[in-house]
Write a protein that binds this DNA or RNA. Sequence first.
DNA 1: CACAAAATACCCTTTTTCGGGGATATGAAA
DNA 2: TTTCATATCCCCGAAAAAGGGTATTTTGTG
Lengths: 209, 209
Amino acid sequence: MNSPIKVFIIDDHPMVIEGIRGLLNGEPGIEVTGSATDAFAAMEFLKAQTADVVLLDINLPEVSGLDLCPELKASFPKMKVLGLSTFKERSFISRMISQGASGYVLKSVSREELVEAIQQAYRGKMYLSMEVAQIMVQPEPASAPVPMLTSREKEILALIAEGLTNNQIAERLFISPLTVDSHRKNLLAKLEVKNTAAMIRIALEHGLI
Amino acid sequence: MNSPIKVFIIDDHPMVIEGIRGLLNGEPGIEVTGSATDAFAAMEFLKAQTADVVLLDINLPEVSGLDLCPELKASFPKMKVLGLSTFKERSFISRMISQGASGYVLKSVSREELVEAIQQAYRGKMYLSMEVAQIMVQPEPASAPVPMLTSREKEILALIAEGLTNNQIAERLFISPLTVDSHRKNLLAKLEVKNTAAMIRIALEHGLI
DNA sequence: CACAAAATACCCTTTTTCGGGGATATGAAA
DNA sequence: TTTCATATCCCCGAAAAAGGGTATTTTGTG
């Protein structure tokens, strides 16, 4: 047998780290070489001691896993990243994949699946669990996974969600109410909804606020 | 030393269960007697073999931990329940406590805190970690934690969130648009907001939809 | 610099929501 | 039995948002 696959875990919950260690403990061919609870500590560790596969939680505080993933791929091109999360929403998964991850496993995976995912990732293949694959396969072909909003639009969206009217937002931002209205219409169009209620719901569901 | 405290874990993520087992492993005076990944299995197990303290995840599929908690207290009055979750939102915590839980720990707790929480719960005391306690202490004295909505109001709220107008909702529910408007006004009043945008945000934050 | 994207501003009309009342029927709780 | 909450329906007027455009100025990036 070759040298074991070196696995590094990044998750802000020590409990989850402990859980993964438990699941992988005694698994031949896999060795957990370290773990971190935040992005900064992870980068520090990996600079000193690289890993083959990184298990990366999506929901890290401060720098989210979604943001950390491309950084990791940039700093350590040969390293494989497996997304790790409780969320099985389409948007999260596709964002993760599009940012260079080698797969995405839910925290509800079994030991067998986790091992399989790590081995596949190590071999340069993409691993998706049945559960995740089913979500990806679902109809939603050409629809925008996460609509791209400009920073100004996000700003205005947040103020709308706070309950401000166009006029109040205009005063707050020192712009014309008509401008706010324009942004608002663009938001409705981009999010493909017909009124404020649906807009706020979609925005919250996609984490845009 | 007396017989060890019997702990039962309910969480839909095997990984988290494994993590807790790891944290409690070797801890004198505490014994993990079993675990379950859903409410039904948990009830079955506990009927056969009761426990002293149950660690209960808030976010279970199907029957949520929030709903399971009162059932557990009803079936096994002497058993203590510790809420377990990644969410540190005020509403979740207070709902859990009001439903008879002996405390609430975040999944990011350390081994020491977890042990402390279990021991305190076993002794019939309430345990709140520093982090959780701080959230509870925060100003929000007389405000309604979770506004009480009637089932009809929730129904209409959900339809509003889907983007339907009063007229569309009226057609859907076979009632007058004026009635829908009345409910809508009551919703605005109960949630203490001035427009739909804020209403949807508050509703989603409190898990009313 | 040139080009595209973003942000800004404006027009008109219609629809919807909001704010403020009031009123009736029903069933459950005090 | 008499409240009380819920659900239903109604009126009016004002405010806001939505639908449909057009157009100018920044600003960022190749």
